[in-house]
Design a protein around this nucleic acid. Structure first.
Lengths: 203, 203
DNA sequence: GCGACAACTTGCGTGCACGCAATTTTGCGT
DNA sequence: ACGCAAAATTGCGTGCACGCAAGTTGTCGC
């Protein structure tokens, strides 16, 4: 790896770490972009060359190094990815709506590997369909995460939120997509040939 | 409807209209929030009480009055919603990435009616599952719209984008979700009972 | 080594989103 | 008609994202 690349990674890491440390120390509300940049030893402008919002560096600091492994059935892979022991800094993400939203948006990171896995295991599917299905899985996961964050945050004893653990919520949210995933990966019976790529574009 | 409410709607409408008119006249790049507010006769601060981004008012001006009718099978309803003749101002939305993104985000507007339709037609499903499924449909639709916008914008003759009409793209993107939707609405056979709500919360 | 080129950083300026508090407008009971 | 409480509008101040045009630093062929 070139020196350039190593320095870039180092800067990214420094920003992540500084953002997380400051957010833990003062609470995320009291951390300015300028503070993070200064703590990391770069200019504020450079911060926005690496992260496009104030929250991004913080959640990156929390979720640093987690990468999605699509090495098993889709639902299990997603559940497993969110079952890894959460770092103790995780509670930070509940403390502001902006952080919650930003964390919920990180599910898009699994969509890339997901389309790759889908086309690898079912090479005949329409690429658009694969992308759509991956986005659908991501959306369902995002709903589960949103519910979980809300349940964990909700200070109102008024309404009962029957939320469970995140893995359970994920399975519940992904459950309705099971038929779609099964249909894609099965050798396909008679009824409802779902989304095979056309051999040649029609007239 | 109260006078208050009518004035609010009038202001909203004025902002929408002004934003659209200015964007058509000068191009969306050359329209400041202050211009829209002034043209609508309100303060710039008030603009952000109605729309939370500069682009929102413009796309609201284009898509004004369209509301999603979930009065038929889900896929058909979505396709129908995006098959209505596009207003001639529609080309605006292709002219900037921010506008495209903002328009793609309007699919979230169909998710609300969608969950309502799902629980209305299949009252036994887990509410979380219904929400997740609606979000999945929205995500797939968003993928289709993104592809369509990209294909319509792409100025490169290099790579062939075999894109079709938006309805076709929507059907292709929603196709892999068909099994999931069918499974939800069918009276449910033997295999794979997908996501019925539990009678009582487990231990 | 060295020079040219590309990539990264930085300062600056602009436009934007939004919290807050003061002010105006509306709805409604009397 | 009147006045009060709720709601909407507005100005102001702050922090943020990002385009642009220097400056600085790594990379590669010679």
């Amino acid at each position: 790896m070139s020196l350039r690349e190593r320095k870039k990674q180092a800067t990214r890491e420094a920003l992540r770490t500084a953002a997380l440390r400051l957010a833990l120390e003062r609470g995320p509300e009291n951390v300015r972009v300028d503070d993070i940049a200064e703590a990391a030893g770069v200019s504020p402008r450079t911060y926005n060359n690496y992260f496009s919002s104030r929250e991004e560096a913080i959640v990156a600091g929390v979720t640093a190094g987690r990468l999605f492994a699509a090495d098993r059935p889709v639902v299990d892979a997603v559940v497993a990815h969110y079952t890894e022991p959460a770092p103790e800094a995780f509670m930070l993400l509940m403390r502001s709506p902006a952080l919650r939203a930003c964390y919920a948006d990180t599910v898009t990171a699994i969509e890339g590997p997901l389309v790759a896995a889908i086309v690898a295991r079912a090479p005949d599917v329409d690429p658009l369909a694969a992308e759509a299905l991956a986005a659908a899985v991501g959306a369902a996961a995002r709903v589960a995460i949103r519910h979980w964050l809300r349940a964990a945050t909700e200070p109102l004893p008024g309404i009962v939120v029957p939320a469970g653990s995140l893995p359970d919520l994920l399975r519940a949210a992904l459950a309705p997509l099971r038929p779609a995933l099964d249909a894609l990966f099965s050798p396909d019976g008679a009824a409802a040939p779902p989304a095979r790529r056309a051999a040649a574009p029609g007239p």
